[in-house]
Amino acid sequence: MENADLSHHIVSRFNEDLERARGNVLRMGGLVESQLALALRALLDGDLAAGNEVVRCEYEVNALQVSIDDECNRILATRAPTASDLRLVVAIIKTVTDMERIGDEAEKVGYIGSHHSNLDHAPEHYRVMRHLGSEVQGMVRDALDCFARLDAATALAVAKRDRLVDEEYEAVQRQCITFMIEDPRTIRRAIDLLWIARALERIGDHAKNICEYVIYMVHGKDIRHTSLKDVEKQLQAEPRPPAVLSATERPQ
């Protein structure tokens, strides 16, 4: 699966099925991406309308998730895909789950943002979240791009950025703790901040998962629960499995 060759099946309806499923994933990705953007706008600019829009998008995202899963079930039952087709379908099934969760987390962020925008919690209090937010937003955007382009090399680079997000999350945590120690009246706001930071950090994790599925799709290697350094070494050392039995595969 060096390139995004979903076509050229002898059965043309199979091409269409795969294209449709993939197209829907990209559409869902676009929706989730805009959900996250709206949520951050609600949070950082105190935009109530944007917050409501996030919640509205959620229904659409959920419906897409169900319909893509249906489509994949149908492909598995009727086409019995193998090799790259199988990996694509498996990756799609997993990706939509992560995307739906990104949507859920964005909804949380949007809800808290819009809920407090008209209270005494002025939006500038959430400014500490700006950097974390834009970093996560970039990760989601790039992860979805990698999925669209089947770009495993970039996917690996994007997955690595999850560490930055984690560090940023730590920093926000420390900052919140400082607020709370300094002035107990900020506890309520600090807890909200922690919730938001936590949601953003989770979104980063989901984006990383999507990158892992892209690498699985392209290289056929399941790299979950492997350190990214090892993955990089593996991919460099053996870009493709051997065409004939490797020493470990061969009967003795």
Binding site: I10, F14, P81, A83, L86, R87, P241, A243, L245, E249
Partner: peptide, 24 residues
Amino acid sequence: EFGQAGRIFTNPAKKATEDYITGR
């Protein structure tokens, strides 16, 4: 191509194998 069935059907190394088993 020759190898363990699990690998051939999920991640074949040769494009010709891939094309054949995926029906391209």
